[in-house]
Simulated assay, not measured.
Amino acid sequence: MSRNIKELEKKISYSFSDEGLLKHAMTHSSYVNEKRLKKTDCNERLEFLGDAVLELVSSEYLFFENPKMPEGELTKLRASMVCEKALAFCARDLDLGDFLLLGKGEDATGGRKRDSITSDALEALIGAIYLDGGFANAKEFILNHVLNDLEGKRLFYDSKTILQELVQGNSGKGICYELVGEVGPDHNKSFQVEVRIGDTTYGQGIGRTKKAAEQEAAYQAILKLKNRKA
C-alpha cells in the first residue's frame, strides 16, 4: 500500500473501528498469491457483500427519484450507474488505486489504474464499511461517493456515445479517432489519441488503453462543443 490508510479514511469521511477490515478491502488477490496467504485474505468476499449493498441502495435511490419510471427502465439505469466503468470513475476520484495492496507483477503492469481492479476494490470498501459501521454508514458513503453527480460521471465514462449523439443530431459529420502517440514500455504503455469531427481536431486524450484514451478525447470534445453553445 503506497499511501497511509488514515489518508484513505479522510477521503471517504469514515473512520473504521476495525482498521483490519479496511486493509482487507484493499488487498488484491495478486498480493495474497504472492505472499502465499489464505485465498480468503483477498478482498473478493467483501466485494461480493459490497455489491449487494450497492444494489439495494442504488435501487432505493432510483425508486424514489423516479416515481413514474417503469421497472425495465429502472433496471437499465441502475446497471449503467453501477457498471465497472462508473465504479472505476468513482474509485479514481478517491485515488483508491494508490491504497491497494497488489502483487509486484500486477503493480508493475498498471494494476492500480485498471478499471476491473479499482471497481472491485470500491465494492469491497462498501462491504467493509457495512460490516464495520452498519447499513446507514454504507448508504451514506454510496450516496456521497457513488450516486453523486451522476450526469457528470456518465458524461465522462460514456463520452464516446454521447459525442456520437451530439454530432449526429447537429452536424451529421463523421467522427474519427486517431492514435497519435505511444509512451512507455509494452507492459505499462500509455496511448495518446485525437478525435476529429470532419477535418477539425476537437479533443485529445491519454490512457493506458486506446479505448480509455478515446474516451478522454471524446470527453474533451464534448466540453469544447458545450462551451461553443454557451
Rank of each mutant, 00 (worst) to 15 (best):
L49S: 15
G50S: 04
D51N: 09
A52Q: 15
V53L: 01
V53W: 09
E55H: 15
E55W: 02
L56S: 11
V57C: 11
V57L: 01
V57S: 10
S59C: 04
S59A: 01
E60P: 00
Y61G: 01
Y61V: 10
L62W: 07
L62E: 04
F63G: 01
F64H: 15
E65W: 06
N66Y: 09
K68A: 06
K68F: 07
M69N: 05
M69K: 11
P70E: 05
P70H: 07
E71R: 14
E71W: 10
E71A: 02
G72P: 09
L74F: 00
T75L: 06
K76T: 11
K76I: 02
K76Y: 06
L77F: 01
L77D: 06
L77H: 04
L77I: 00
L77M: 06
R78W: 13
A79E: 12
A79V: 03
A79N: 13
A79R: 15
S80C: 09
M81C: 04
C83F: 01
E84H: 05
E84P: 03
E84V: 12
E84L: 10
K85V: 02
A86Q: 05
A86G: 11
A86F: 12
L87Y: 00
L87S: 13
L87C: 06
A88W: 01
A88H: 04
A88V: 03
C90N: 12
C90G: 00
A91N: 12
R92L: 05
R92A: 05
D93W: 08
D93G: 15
D95S: 12
D95N: 13
G97M: 04
G97E: 10
D98K: 11
L100F: 07
G103H: 13
G103W: 00
K104D: 04
G105Y: 06
D107L: 15
D107H: 08
D107T: 07
G110M: 00
G111K: 04
R112K: 15
R114N: 07
D115S: 14
S116F: 00
T118D: 11
T118N: 05
S119C: 09
D120H: 11
D120C: 06
L122W: 10
A124W: 09
L125D: 07
L125V: 08
I126T: 09
G127L: 03
A128N: 00
A128F: 07
A128M: 06
I129E: 02
I129H: 05
Y130F: 15
Y130G: 02
Y130I: 04
L131D: 03
L131N: 01
D132A: 08
G133M: 07
G134P: 13
F135A: 02
F135T: 04
A136E: 03
A136R: 03
A136G: 02
A138F: 04
K139W: 02
E140W: 03
N144I: 00
H145N: 12
L147S: 09
N148G: 00
D149A: 14
L150S: 05
L150M: 14
L150Y: 14
L150T: 13
E151Y: 10
G152F: 12
R154C: 05
F156S: 02
F156E: 10
F156W: 14
Y157F: 14
D158C: 14
D158E: 15
S159K: 02
K160S: 13
I162T: 09
I162H: 13
I162P: 06
